[in-house]
């Protein structure tokens, strides 16, 4: 039963561009990007118990690096993609060393501070980043010579990347390393006593999450063909965090669902409702009250209860 549903979902996702208009296909692409981003944040928040309010750093830096390398230095998309991801991952390694000195609210604040510094640099160093005007006129890559300029082509590209990302992150969480991460989240002292190195486990997770954040950033800049400092802002980080929590942190699918929900409210419902911000806030409050652990765990519980 579960497998049939999953297969149907997969078929529906693949075939979407055949029955939906460009606008909806593009909306779906944005959801896929937001889903990768949220899933990467979930590695920290959900499995690692590290609530980060600066995850937009990785999305933004990868996007900026790719934008600068391709548009200003004339690099090819392949090389700049590799370099951007490597650069972002290296940065995550460095940030991890700083941020992991703290836990709890301190960790949240230090990630926020680091991302604010990047945001400030992107804004202020207009000679490099073009400041508030952002970098426009970007192109999408052409993997194997296939143009991604149509809505459908980009969607399929994003779907492939997202599926692979989902797989890789789910495998990570389900692996023995993932178990030790959850152990460190719940019982750091006991884990240390058992001979694990909690700091190292957290750091590796931090870097891995930064890597996938960078991947989502690449897709983000390919999709928008434009990058602006707001992509690095606390608001972007907070939005992703809210998506993760609303969907269900620490679950495989929850963050994707939450991210999709935030995106839908922001980009779709807002066409019909001026007060969409208020609705967004009310939805968050509602979710917490009704399903304190998030949508996906909440619904799962509901569905499991029914047959019995």
């Amino acid at each position: 039963m579960k497998w049939i549903a999953a297969a149907l979902l997969a078929v529906a996702l693949v075939l979407l561009p055949f029955f939906a208009g460009d606008f909806y296909v593009n909306l779906a692409s944005q959801m896929l990007i937001a889903a990768i981003f949220a899933l990467s944040l979930n590695l920290l928040v959900g499995y690692g118990g590290m609530t980060s309010l600066g995850h937009a750093s990785y999305l933004g830096v990868a996007a900026y690096m790719s934008a600068l390398l391709t548009s200003r230095y004339g690099w090819g998309h392949g090389a700049s993609a590799v370099f951007s991801i490597l650069g972002t991952t290296a940065m995550a390694g460095f940030f991890g060393v700083i941020a992991l000195r703290a836990t709890g609210l301190g960790f949240l604040m230090i990630t926020l501070a680091l991302s604010q510094v990047l945001w400030g640099l992107a804004y202020r160093m207009s000679g490099v980043t073009n400041g508030d005007n952002g970098i426009g006129g970007l192109t999408r890559p052409m993997p194997f010579g296939i143009s991604l300029d149509s809505a459908a082509a980009f969607y399929w590209f994003a779907l492939i990347v997202a599926s692979f990302s989902f797989l890789m992150m789910t495998v990570f969480a389900a692996s023995s390393f993932g178990s030790s991460l959850k152990g460190v989240r719940d019982q750091p002292r006991r884990m240390a006593a058992l001979g694990f190195n909690p700091w190292m486990i957290r750091w590796i997770t931090f870097v891995y999450a930064g890597f996938w954040g960078g991947v989502s950033g690449l897709l983000y800049v390919y999709y928008n063909k434009y990058i602006h400092p707001t992509s690095l802002s606390t608001t972007s980080s907070a939005e992703a965090l809210l998506g993760v929590i609303a969907g269900g942190s620490g679950t495989a699918a929850g963050p994707a669902v939450g991210a999709a929900l935030v995106l839908l409210l922001k980009n779709y419902v807002s066409a019909y409702l001026d007060r969409w911000n208020m609705l967004l806030g009310a939805v968050f409050v509602f979710i917490v009250l009704v399903m304190p652990t998030g949508i996906v765990p909440g619904l799962t519980k509901l569905l499991q209860r029914r047959p019995r």
């Binding site: 928040v45 609530t51 907070a238 965090l241 809210l242 929590i245 609303a246 942190s249 007060r275 911000n277 208020m278 967004l280 806030g281 009310a282 939805v283 968050f284 409050v285 979710i287 917490v288 009250l289 304190p292 652990t293």
Partner: peptide, 26 residues
């Protein structure tokens, strides 16, 4: 609201930010 979430720090983040969205939009 908050009193129901004493042991749910992530829920607190969601609900306090959600409340601030509501207030600022109001």
């Amino acid at each position: 609201i908050l009193t129901r979430l004493k042991t749910n720090p992530l829920g607190q983040v969601l609900v306090t930010l959600g409340m601030s969205f509501i207030i600022s939009d109001a």
